[in-house]
Design a protein around this nucleic acid. Structure first.
Length: 237
DNA sequence: TAGGCCATCTGGTCCT
DNA sequence: AGGACCAGATGGCCTA
């Protein structure tokens, strides 16, 4: 059985709105305040103050208990008011959900910005779109793993990262997963799950081809001028 | 002006 | 029950 309307309304958290731009709608605080005001107006009468005489409205208005039409009108007004309150309640919850959703998307965008910041830099005034950022990061990881794998195949003794990547690329790279950060340990996991054997890897897609010595980022949706200003993807000789 | 990208709103579904 | 997540809809802005 649902809680009484006035109880649910009083439970509303009125302090959580972020002051968002909701032109045309009530803010959360406004909604809550209005709901609570309406609830106090239409809810059951407040408990009598201690010592105050407990006198009902009906007894205040002699003859009102006999007026069936008046009671019916009051019931109708109460029902309409309750429906309006429920509508406002839904509205208030919707506004709060919108607020959370907005915040969630902001967090997602912040994560995308963080991802952009660790990808090799493009010209400062160029910002990758969301889909480009994800594709780029995917290819970037794949290419690093593939470069290490090929390098470690052809260059015994490891150290492929240092040999293959120019010094300016080092700040671009995410750190290795463990403190033992030699090329073998860094690349072994990727080699074990080689992108070449993965049908979802760029190498397995007809859109992507990778040959040693090629610039490895060549997915078609990225503008060519961006690709050619990428500093980090040509194997270092 | 069409198309791409983005932010926001919204209702449904899943999870805790 | 409430929050997180998701996908669709919508409108604004920008660019070719």
């Amino acid at each position: 059985m649902p809680a009484p309307l006035e109880t649910r309304i009083s439970d509303l958290d009125c302090a959580s709105s972020s002051g968002s731009d909701l032109s045309g709608f009530l803010t959360d605080e406004e909604d809550c305040a209005r709901l609570q005001q309406a609830a106090s107006a239409s809810g059951p009468p407040a408990p009598a103050r201690r010592g105050a005489p407990n006198i009902s409205r009906a007894s205040e208005v002699p003859g009102a208990q006999d007026d069936e039409q008046e009671r019916r009108r009051r019931r109708g007004r109460t029902r309409v008011r309750s429906e309006a309150l429920l509508h406002s309640l839904r509205r208030s919850r919707r506004v709060k959900a919108n607020d959370r959703e907005r915040n969630r998307m902001h967090n997602l965008n912040a994560a995308l910005d963080a991802l952009r910041s660790v990808l090799p830099s493009f010209p400062d005034d160029t910002k990758l779109t969301k889909i480009e950022t994800l594709r780029f990061a995917y290819n970037y990881i794949w290419a690093l793993a593939e470069t290490l794998r090929l390098a470690d195949q052809g260059l015994p003794g490891g150290g492929a990262r240092e040999r293959l990547l120019p010094p300016q690329c080092v700040p671009c790279l995410p750190g290795p997963p463990s403190p033992a950060s030699d090329a073998e340990s860094w690349g072994s996991g990727a080699a074990a799950a080689s992108p070449l054997s993965d049908p979802s890897s760029p190498a397995a897609s007809e859109d992507f081809t990778y040959r040693p010595g090629d610039p490895v980022f060549s997915f078609p949706s990225l503008p060519k001028d961006l690709l050619h200003t990428t500093p980090c993807f040509i194997p270092y000789h």
